[in-house]
Design a protein around this nucleic acid. Structure first.
Lengths: 195, 195
DNA sequence: TGTATGTCTTGTCATTGTCAAGATCATATT
DNA sequence: AATATGATCTTGACAATGACAAGACATACA
């Protein structure tokens, strides 16, 4: 049988990352346990060490993966939007919120935890890619200043963070399409204005 | 001597809250340890239990205190601003960011942790007071819709969260008065427009 | 075939949160 | 003043956790 218990897992690194995200989603980052991840992946409690060093190393790898999925969520919205720069920027903002709502625990790992090592080469590259995408979108939409960038980033991030934490109950209780309409309205206020 | 070691502390509850905030600031919420708090306050590791139940109980009480200080930070800015509603709203936003920059660990406890029990009566009241203040400010400045409220809250929250986490390096590296000017510019974009 | 390297397990230790039991103190009542 | 009652704090214990060391097992390669 292919699922026979073997001494060598074969793809343990990937299995541990999947188990870690599942644990994160179920128990939250504050109750995250390396041993629980190992148990879920069906290996001994010390197995993760060889692949990730320590618990923070595993969370660092998971965060890098998370930032790439974060960009994918934005790209998915952008693909559905009209190609003009303003619509693309709004779409990126909607994707930012989508990710936060669909994977709240991962979102919190990326933006609200200091357990990942952001000096790690892979993670810092993934995080910078996300930042660069934002800057490019704002710039294409006519943004020129630090205030233009920061305003758009802040409003998208604030909405994503508050919504995923369940604090913005007004918007959070809307059906999806209504929520999108309100969010689009809000993002539009921050678009760099053509002069 | 007044600082003699007594069996009964006398004001242990307050001392533990202060020790907890200091520990939070020094080691971060992810390394928060109840025993370290007790040691810092000079009592045994089990002493906090009687006053707060468990570790989350202590963090709940600290969060309630934190929300009140959060409102004080906004009030401090409002007192220095002109009394017109728009200026008051911008001042509240600046106070929001002040608090996040001055007490980043506490800010994260309030907005990015699920360890505090938000069903706790004292904490939920303190958190609702903060929310009510925001709604009133937005309303006084002419805001009428859910989008008006959410936009202002989100931009203030996003700026505060990103700045306190050190992610908004552009603005974060500015001297205080320059930063205030940029933030004021950004907040002004979200002010409800007189129609 | 034999050896080196990589992968995983078992066992151990210090630290942590929580609970139980007991010691000490403060206060009210008589 | 003496005592009782309850609040406050300590000591000791336990299970869970992250990290480390040593060894077992498997694969790659000569």
């Amino acid at each position: 049988m292919s699922d026979e218990k073997r001494y060598h897992h074969g793809d343990l690194r990937r299995a541990l990352l999947e188990a870690a995200e599942a644990e994160l989603a179920e128990r939250g980052i504050e109750a995250f346990s390396l041993r629980a991840v190992a148990k879920r992946a069906g290996v001994s409690h010390a197995a993760p060490a060889h692949h990730f060093g320590d618990a923070n190393g595993l969370l660092t790898a998971l965060a890098a993966h998370g930032f790439r999925q974060f960009l994918e969520a934005q790209a998915a919205r952008e693909a559905k939007a009209t190609p003009d720069p303003s619509a693309q920027l709004v779409a990126a903002g909607l994707g930012y919120v989508d990710f936060a709502l669909q994977r709240p625990a991962l979102f919190r790992l990326l933006w609200g935890s200091n357990r990942p090592d952001f000096a790690d080469a892979d993670l810092s590259r993934a995080a910078e890619d996300a930042y660069r995408h934002l800057v490019e979108q704002v710039s294409a939409a006519g943004g020129r200043t630090v205030a233009d960038e920061s305003a758009m980033w802040a409003v998208a991030h604030g909405l994503a963070d508050l919504l995923s934490a369940g604090r913005l109950k007004a918007i959070g209780s809307f059906p999806d399409d209504t929520r999108d309409a309100v969010l689009t309205d809000i993002f539009s206020r921050f678009l760099p204005r053509p002069q």
